[in-house]
Write a protein that binds this DNA or RNA. Structure first.
Length: 490
RNA sequence: CGGGGUAUGGCCCAGUCCGGUCAAGGCGCCUGCUUUGGGAGCAGGAGAUCGCAGGUUCGAAUCCUGCUACCCCGACCA
């Protein structure tokens, strides 16, 4: 077990915090509820960004940037949307500071009050749709497929590193379409992109589905989501994609001339994933030795640690390592040579384990003699001695194997923590233990609320490819046509 | 926003009840020597107006009042 990391079993929240801090991903900042993302953590976000950005571009989306500040009046235009965010908006009321005449302290200049207050965006639908009104006139302008990478602010009461902070980074896509069908298809396409990204890159299995009306995004007709199961048995929403119907088009008067020369409102979607994904990544794979990163998102995929007794040996090893690094880089592997002379090998081993580097190579005098290298896997903590020949090729294969193994492990975990429950007593008991619980629901908000009140479990999603199955609601005994997924959630 | 807790070098923390060489210890940091195949050892060294503002007192980390920040548990949320 690693020094300074609380075990998962002892205290899961503390374990999570310890990993974030000790792996040098982020730290609490001086600003209440906001965090500093440190270089190693940010490098993971950059990898996520680059992959997702490629996927969006591949499907025809373009990036743009809209203002951080939104005039308050924009918020009154779509009522249900406002209700969803009103309680957590930061508001700019003044635009100038001054020195207090008596105390000399910096104070807000009350004379510099804004005519119209500005809201720091909690999400950008309103400001974007205000622009779209001018961008869209004809069906020829559609579809409009825009994404932006940005920060947003939601004034949360309780915050946790990466999972919920007052300010966070995300991408938000906002699209406009001619028809309802096309917009729905877009929302579903993005959901598939999110699910692919989660599974193939993050190594994190996800369920796909739609939200119940209660859990739906304020202002949406339908909210699609991916949900994954964390190691403590709690669910985490990892991405959402909304079909917004014509709500925003009507609120912001975005109309176009159709092929039939008729004036119509456009159909909209919006969708996003945030730095919360980093929290999901941590809680999906990591262990009591620290972070475990899937090779495809690891900032450093291979770290090389030299073992030596004197500078002569170090020079000989470094010479050898130079060649290996060139080979690895040629294969697209990111590699770091940890030749710090101020740390012993044992310390370096622990440190890189803590930081989740998928593969570690150790090379010492014995290896130079024998033409070998010690290869250690982070996911299984196994070590083996390999011949140096074709090492790059071997590592490419190993990294793929690790990526696959991490996914399989997470999948098996979810599988072992997925249950089908048909009576209320069993349901309450099961929810208490954690995991995804498939149960029948009568489809009413009242029942959903009562279940939440009594068990703290929410409907995470209604499965998209769920089989029709007649049954009776686990709470009310009313008829149901299919199972939905319940869980306690982050 | 309710309930509870904490605040002492970069980090973890002792000391607070019973005011007076009390600012202790560990980690980390710096220097030197010895070390280096799983978190090294020894020696020396730097670093704290004890969260902030008042008050009591000859004297306050310690007692009193007010404030602020953070953490945990709830309600709310990605």
């Amino acid at each position: 077990m690693a020094k300074g990391i609380t075990t998962k079993e002892e205290n899961y929240s503390q374990w999570y915090n310890d990993i974030v801090r000790k792996a040098d991903l982020a730290e609490i900042s001086a600003v209440r509820g906001s965090m500093v993302i440190k270089p190693y953590g940010y490098a993971i976000w950059e990898k996520m960004q680059s992959v997702l950005d490629g996927m969006f571009k591949e499907t025809g989306h373009e990036n743009a940037y809209f203002p951080l500040f939104i005039p308050k009046s924009f918020f009154s235009k779509e009522a249900s949307h406002v209700e969803g965010f009103a309680k957590e908006c930061a508001v700019v009321t003044h635009y100038r500071l001054k020195n207090d005449e008596k105390t000399g302290e910096i104070v807000v200049d009350e004379d510099a009050k804004l005519e119209e207050e500005l809201i720091v965006r909690p999400t950008s639908e309103t400001i974007i749709w205000d622009s779209y009104r001018n961008w869209i006139q004809s069906y020829r302008d559609l579809p409009l497929l825009i994404n932006q990478w940005a920060n947003v602010v939601r004034w949360e009461m309780r915050t946790r590193l990466f999972l919920r902070t007052a300010e966070f980074l995300w991408q938000e896509g906002h699209t406009a379409h001619e028809t309802r069908e096309e917009a729905v298809k877009e929302a579903e396409l993005i959901l598939k992109i999110y699910a692919d990204f989660a599974e193939k890159w993050m190594g994190m299995p996800v369920l796909k589905g739609v939200k119940s009306p209660n859990e739906r995004f304020a202002g949406a007709i339908e909210t699609y989501c991916i949900e994954s199961l964390m190691q403590d048995g709690k669910a985490l929403q990892a991405g959402t994609s909304h079909f917004l119907g014509q709500n925003f088009a009507k609120a912001f008067e975005v109309q176009f001339l159709s092929r039939e020369n008729k004036l119509e409102y456009v159909w909209a979607t919006s969708w996003g994933v945030s730095t919360r994904l980093i929290g999901a990544l941590i809680m999906s794979h990591s262990d009591n030795n620290g972070l475990v990163l899937p090779p495809r998102l690891a900032p450093i995929q291979v770290v090389i640690v030299p073992i030596y007794k004197n500078t002569g040996q170090l020079d000989a090893i470094s010479e050898k390592v130079k060649g290996i690094m060139q080979e690895l880089k040629a294969k697209g592997i990111s590699v770091k040579y940890d030749n710090r002379d101020t740390r012993k090998p044992g310390f370096k081993f622990s440190e890189w384990e803590l930081k989740g580097v998928p593969v570690r190579l150790a090379i010492g005098p014995r290896d130079l003699e024998n033409g070998t290298v010690e290869v250690a896997r982070r996911d299984t903590l196994e070590k083996e001695i390999l011949q140096m020949a074709d090492i790059a090729e071997k590592l490419v294969n190993l990294l793929e194997k690790i990526q696959d193994n991490i996914y399989q492990k997470a999948f098996t975990f979810r599988d072992n923590n997925t249950f089908y429950v048909d009576n209320w007593e069993a349901f309450k008991e099961r929810i208490e233990q954690g995991g995804f619980v498939y149960a029948h629901w009568d489809g009413t908000a009242e029942t959903e609320q009562k279940i939440k009140d009594e068990t703290k479990a929410t409907i995470r999603l209604i499965p998209i490819d769920g089989k029709a199955e007649a049954g009776k609601c686990v709470y009310s005994d009313e008829p149901s046509t299919g199972r939905v997924v319940f869980a306690r959630a982050y």
